[in-house]
């Protein structure tokens, strides 16, 4: 690795001050599992940083707090292991555990943060589809103050987010799960662990009071577009409908059309589109079944 300076602030304010004081060429480092590898490769994806600002010791990024009626605050600096081990997350947002629990190996999960996964902005990021399907919002703080935006607006392209220089992702805000709702995430990979999604699909559904119609459906796709995406036409085709196998099959076919994948070593575009349909269909059945059981 080529030289860079490194700062270890102890609070969010101190971190923001460090970027302000040191000026251009700075980059945050959280778990480092993407960044250090990219720096070792020479930093081709972005200009090689002049200095790093460590987020490891910022208590503001380690928040994990449930408030009745408001939902969950999930600090961007929580590691995948911390997310997976949280009883709160396991009980109320199992789809997030589905995603966080398969990021690399145990070693990776002990280092990788959920915020770093979003900020690195890989289309295949495993926590992105669950966050999208759960309609999480991202709280971002920077030199010009703070803003809160739906995660759907967070990604601009591969490796690109809305974050401006000196801005930090502080936490995700997740709405409380509705009664008779359920969410699932699954990725297709040849290996169970230590692999990158060929496609990833997250589905969140909510049934109405008598369980006969779908009040809400959210379908999010990873690794099939320049950013993680919502399959909105598929969602719209389900909402207000009875969750019949035919309706589910129609929605899955629409999700396939909404995917715009590329061909690469992990799979051809055609294979990816096929997988989107198959996985979406299976997950819709699974989520609806779970929502019925309550």
């Amino acid at each position: 690795m080529r030289p860079f300076a490194h700062f270890s602030p102890k609070s969010l304010d101190e971190a923001l001050d460090t970027f302000r004081r040191e000026g251009e060429g700075g980059r945050p480092i959280a778990g480092g599992t993407d960044l250090v590898v990219q720096l070792k490769e020479g930093g081709h994806k972005f200009p090689y940083p002049r200095y790093l600002v460590s987020l490891r010791r910022l208590p503001e990024l380690k928040v994990l707090e449930w408030r009745e009626g408001e939902g969950l605050r999930l600090g961007a600096g929580l590691t995948m292991s911390e997310v997976v081990e949280s009883a709160l997350v396991r009980e109320r947002y199992p789809a997030l555990v589905d995603g966080a629990g398969i990021v690399g190996s145990l070693q990776t999960m002990n280092m990788a943060t959920i915020g770093g996964n979003a900020c690195n902005a890989a289309p295949s990021a495993d926590t992105a589809p669950p966050l999208l399907a759960l309609e999480a919002r991202a709280r971002v703080v920077g030199p010009e103050g703070e803003r809160v935006l739906p995660v759907e607006q967070f990604w601009l392209g591969p490796g690109r987010t809305v974050l401006r220089p000196g801005e930090l992702l502080v936490e995700f805000l997740l709405p409380p799960p509705a009664p008779r709702s359920a969410a699932v995430y699954r990725r297709h990979t040849p290996r169970k662990q230590m692999d990158i999604a060929v496609v990833g699909v997250a589905v969140a559904v909510e049934l109405d009071g008598d369980g006969r119609t779908l009040k809400r459906a959210r379908i999010a796709l990873g690794a099939v577009a320049p950013t993680p995406i919502r399959a909105r036409r598929a969602e719209a085709a389900l909402e207000g409908q009875a969750p019949t196998p035919e309706a589910i099959a129609r929605a899955a076919a629409l999700a396939r059309e909404e995917a715009t994948p590329i061909s690469d070593v992990r799979g051809s575009a055609a294979f990816r589109r096929h997988l989107v349909e198959v996985v979406t269909e299976r997950l819709l059945h699974e989520a609806i079944e779970r929502a019925r059981r309550g």
Binding site: H6, I29, G32, T33, V36, V37, K40, L52, T79, S81, S105, L106, Q107, T108, N110, M111
Partner: peptide, 10 residues
Amino acid sequence: GRLVTSCIML
């Protein structure tokens, strides 16, 4: 107390 890959930890 956490297992890590120390080659990518500064």
